[in-house]
Design a protein around this nucleic acid. Structure first.
Lengths: 230, 230
DNA sequence: AGAAGACCTTGATCTAAGTCAAGCCTCCAC
DNA sequence: GTGGAGGCTTGACTTAGATCAAGGTCTTCT
């Protein structure tokens, strides 16, 4: 079964381009952990002595306000790493992580992983690329939250889903609308209303979680300007 | 003058703990660049073929909406690096950088810097720590923007200034209020009103950019809950 | 099957904060 | 000095989106 694990690890983008030997060493330091749907993986403020890579399932990373409102920061799926910040900076996890469905994760203990990085510059560069991509993502998230209105964020999200789907006009929401609301920095009621408006304005059609883009041009305009939905 | 540069570089946290030889090599790849007050250093979307470390002066990193509203992401001072994302991930700068005052910067060309990192794991780990710290910062920024109201963000900022100042009750805003507004994700009018409210509620005293914290306890409560200012 | 609960939608209301407008002060530059 | 520009404050108004409340649908577990 360790063979299977090496095989899996070799497919993870974070470990792309590493020599076989490194992959084996990486595999040897991992611990497999399973979580049921709804289980917390860690809480904000927990001591972080390692990070995770998802083997199967989905994880959401989120913050909670004192009143209980949640802001989702990331949704991660198979092959994606999370919880790396305390590995390199020390200290605690800056947000919560929860299994959205039954999940299987590989845990990389901090100390061992840092030792491997010290021996292997490629691994370091891969990790730098991962963190950089995440910074780029956050830059956009801050931009969206601060400078766009909810319709603009939603439009951008739909177009994003579409482009991941080969620019198909038919997209399927890959999470509950409640979670999508939290990802967009709003609440389910508001999301629901805005989706209705998009349907009424004939920018989209909707049937449950399946959405058809009818007017890509105006949707793009909405996503860019962040304003102006009737 | 290269000696002076090595001396400076050895003080930069990013290069902490590196052997003398590495410091010299680092120095050798740098290019010095000067900017006058108000000069752009780069624009969002520019090709990023290197990053900067500030020798003197202040830099602000910000996004602009199509209507011209700005959200400041960072304010950086001497010894701090910026513009690293494209170095490790390729592509373009995710935001704009501008000199707030006359600035002197060291430019590290991407190709040379990556070559040094490949030879030096400590440098890689230092850089990973820098990016991790920045991720942590963004996590908080998103949390603030999405889950707190402006008074809460302001209170948190004031307490932050105070704690950097050895918990002195007397803090001095280190930027124009217009910029502070943009940093907090709001506009000057709103900031002005909320400062007035804090004064009226006797949480602070204010005289221009000098602010005295009168009621730290309530200010902390405001910063944590993000709600509840009368 | 039936009960329980999660999820989604719609309506009425409320509020934080943005917009528009005007006036003031301060700091330079000419 | 004087004029102008940028920054700051205050007031009246508007609005995006949150809150509160209720009803409907769909899952899931016993």
């Amino acid at each position: 079964m360790t063979n299977g694990r090496v095989q899996f690890i070799s497919q993870v983008p974070l470990f792309q381009g590493l020599p076989e030997r490194q992959l084996v060493e990486l595999t040897e330091i991992t611990v497999e952990r399973s979580f049921a749907k709804g289980d917390p993986v860690f809480f904000e403020g927990d001591e972080g002595n390692g990070f995770y890579v998802i083997t199967s399932g989905k994880i959401r990373i989120f913050k909670v306000s004192p009143e209980g409102k949640e802001q989702i920061l990331h949704m991660f799926g198979p092959g994606e790493p999370f919880g790396e910040v305390p590995v390199f900076e020390g200290g605690r996890f800056p947000a919560n992580a929860e299994a959205l469905e039954s999940c299987s994760l590989l845990f990389f203990p901090r100390r061992d992983f840092v030792r491997l990085i010290e021996k292997n510059p490629s691994l370091a560069l891969n990790m730098l690329a991962v963190l950089s991509r995440r910074l780029r993502f956050f830059t956009r998230l801050v931009d969206d939250l601060s400078l766009k209105e909810v319709p603009g964020r939603l439009a951008a999200h739909l177009l994003n889903l579409s482009s991941r789907n080969g620019l198909s006009d038919l997209v399927e929401l890959d999470m509950a609308k409640t979670h999508l609301a939290s990802l967009l920095g709003t609440i389910p009621e508001t999301l629901s209303r805005i989706l209705s408006r998009l349907v009424k304005s004939e920018l989209i059609e909707m049937e449950g979680p399946r959405i058809r883009i009818l007017d890509r041009e105006n949707l793009e305009h909405l996503a860019e300007t962040g304003k102006g939905l009737v």
